[in-house]
Design a protein around this nucleic acid. Structure first.
Lengths: 349, 349
DNA sequence: TTGTAAGCGTTATCAA
DNA sequence: TTGATAACGCTTACAA
């Protein structure tokens, strides 16, 4: 039978105690030094006698020792962990954010905890409460919380918000206006005169911003614009809107996101409405799958992975900083770009 | 200026100490009991005097107290956290698993840590090492580690593996044979006589199982079968395979997963190969987006969210159990089903 | 039912 | 440079 305490290389480590993991005390005994010296050797390399350090490292290796991050976190207060709270993990918009955040965190030796709020402010608050004591900082992506709640959270731990601006807080935002301008110019150039905005959840800050930007951009090009919604930011949300879209008589629809755009496209196809000949459809985000459809979805691409990455970087910058001097009101705008595919074309004559 | 220690409801909590979070000592002082009594009241409700408990709860509320999970984890050894290691967060196959796992964990009051290995066994080992000390159990989805490494991990913490069978370990598997039989029967029924399998990474256990199942099923129906690969389990992996697929002269291709199937479909369309008239394509998993394409991808659906859920449930069952008596060799088979869409049809005459 | 006190595995402060 | 020792916030025998 295999030895129950055998090390990764197959050799049996000396003095391994049955069951429990080795501690700095075991190392201290083996290297014949005080535990505090072991701690120093391992956490501040170079600051102790080279020979002693060597002996300690050898002992640690022999015992296959790994620091216990929990024990370390208790006196230091730092966990080397960051939290990311998202509305819905299965929403592809989120994927990019999660990936970017994970990358940046892992790169810095940090662990990422992802919590899901399922589009509910209440659950989000619960998720934050659960996660916050064990993280060094928090990213709120697509939050459904109110400004006051967000500020409260920021008092407890360093915080960065994605897709939402809150006064006094660091936030990473797509440059909505730029993308919308490009999109509206594109539709105008095709000859559209009337468009509709298929809005997302009314708790979505970013949906409101997109609507505002459209409201500002459309009249400038002599286009009429109406809002249809609010709706769920999902395929179904898009499908359900088709009746109102048809009734509105517009020649082009801008959906809150690609998911809704794809849902709308499907519903249109089912009704025999040819896209883009009879109706142009555009979305936001350029999610995975936006180019799978026929026609592909014209969309305003947001650099989601980069948003996740930057959010984590900002957090990392502030971890360990004095909470007395929070970084105020930093707003980082990420460039967006129009991706033209087949779902937009000239309006019917 | 706002009070720096004001509670959520806006009232100023009594005796809140500047900056640091309240502890059970603060509660004990306020409720005039011993800290250990506070601990008991909060962690084992009902086991102490009702009036005392009431007083303690009131004090806790007044101070806006929340347990420090790290401090709790140190003496108990339990963190109320589970780890999930995946190959690639942005792979839609994973999404379902993550969602299911997150749900089940959150439901049980557990926090989920998601770590990414980026399809590399080495990084996966690193990720496991980083995460394992702070979790009560671990799920390995789509692992690229060897059996021996996996068994080693299982010696440290309760472990469940998804999409991989390892002797002595609990594993959640799709019923590959059933799905493959259905798929082969479907293709055979359409009239195909020669098929190719577009294999995934050669480190993928599940890819090998799919190949074996195809090898077993095809001859039974008098179909020839060849393997093309290995390839990356991505869109690109599918795209790159088109040359070899065409050269092979088969009338139908079964890809390792939907991502590769979609990539292959795209490459086919670009070359003017009509799907399914000139070539039938099928995949596995039924990921998000498999029905966005034209034609939609015929695929063997695996209940991914359920796999994630079950993995977590098994883990939860074993958390706190004696490591001396591990659950041996439990293999749970999840039913798979053929989803027929437009990408498969009769072979060219 | 409640209080006392030891301990979880680290880090950090002081001396030596 | 190293050792002794007190935290960190909680749980948990054991005693009262």
């Amino acid at each position: 039978m295999a030895d129950e305490a055998s090390a990764s290389d197959g050799r049996v480590p000396k003095r391994a105690r049955g069951g429990t993991a080795p501690t700095i005390y075991d190392i201290a005994r083996l290297a014949e030094v005080n535990p505090s010296t072991v701690s120093r050797a391992l956490s501040q390399p170079g600051r102790i006698n080279a020979k002693t350090e060597e002996r300690i490292r050898a002992a640690a290796k022999e015992l296959d020792y790994r620091v216990n991050p929990i024990a370390r976190a208790l006196p230091t207060g730092r966990t080397n962990t960051l939290g990311l709270v998202v509305a819905d993990i299965t929403n592809p918009v989120i994927f990019g954010i999660v990936r970017g955040a994970e990358r940046a965190a892992a790169e810095a030796g940090y662990t990422l905890i992802v919590a899901e709020s399922q589009e509910s402010g209440e659950r989000e608050a619960t998720a934050v409460d659960r996660v916050i004591p064990s993280v060094d900082g928090l990213v709120l992506a697509t939050t459904r919380l109110g400004d006051a709640q967000i500020s409260k959270i920021a008092e407890r731990k360093p915080l960065v918000v994605i897709n939402r601006a809150v006064e006094g807080q660091t936030s990473i935002l797509p440059d909505v206006e730029r993308g919308v301008d490009q999109l509206v110019a594109h539709l105008s150039g095709l000859g559209h005169r009337s468009i509709a905005y298929l809005s997302g959840p009314d708790t979505s800050w970013i949906s409101a911003r997109r609507w505002e930007a459209l409201m500002a951009a459309a009249p400038k090009r002599a286009m009429s614009i109406v809002e249809i919604g609010p709706g769920a930011p999902t395929l179904e949300g898009g499908v359900e809107a088709i009746t109102r879209v048809v009734a509105s008589g517009v020649s082009a629809v801008v959906a809150f996101n690609d998911l809704m755009a794809i849902g709308l496209l499907r519903a249109a196809v089912e009704r025999g409405i040819v896209v883009p000949d009879a109706l142009s459809i555009a979305g936001f985000d350029d999610i995975f799958g936006s180019d799978f459809t026929t026609p592909g979805i014209t969309t305003v691409r947001a650099p989601l992975a980069e948003a996740g990455e930057r959010a984590v970087r900002h957090l990392l910058d502030r971890v360990g900083a004095q909470p007395a001097e929070p970084e105020h009101d930093l707003e980082e705008l990420l460039p967006t770009d129009l991706v033209v595919r087949g779902s937009t074309g000239p309006p019917p004559a």
